[in-house]
Amino acid sequence: MERLLFDLSIAIERGKENETSPYPPDLKGKPGAYEFTSRLLEMNCPPDTILKQGMMPGMDRIGKKFADGIVFIPEILIAAKAMKAAMTLLKPYFDNGAVLRKGKVIIGTVAGDLHDIGKNIVCMVLEGAGWEVFDLGVDVTKEKFLASLNEHPESIICMSALLTTTMREMEKSVTTIKQAFPQTKIYLGGAPLTSDFADKIGADGYFPDPHSLSKHLTGNL
């Protein structure tokens, strides 16, 4: 079983979704994350073990390589796709409580901004790390963040912006959320942002890549 868990982690790290997926070329025709997860479930491997010892290490390794500049966005995207394929098999166990999530994350690109590739990657990495992610999409107003927080008050908020003007919108959103939910942690991401900016507007941190955010969130549990 340990071997299969290791193979699953490699399939996710390398972005091998299933037997028919073309990536990576050197694993063409070989089983992927879907098949390994399926076999593990057939062998009665606990779903929580599959998540923690198979999927998460794979996502963690590729996330670290991305943060270190060894791989680029395409590798993260195919890894996330492989992870998602495995996740579909675990979904029933999340739903019935057999696998517990680490917590809830509400994420969105702030009002006025329609960029979402970076935000989508963060969603996939956090899901792969065991978080329940509520993706509010793009052009998210502070009211929409608040409404979602009212529904899931224990959540962490992640905000993204790619424009210098929407950074101002981010400030308004952070202020409004902190007034209503002072204990809620708010983390920022996006190319034009910095840690100084996050400090200045009262957010709890800035992360330049999904891996460092995921590591921070898990470290704070």
């Binding site: 996330a80 796709k81 979402d116 996939m124």
Partner: peptide, 13 residues
């Protein structure tokens, strides 16, 4: 394309 294949959407972008 983003709904179907994030990688191709990134290539298009």
């Amino acid at each position: 394309v983003q709904q179907i294949d994030m990688l191709q959407a990134f290539v298009i972008d």
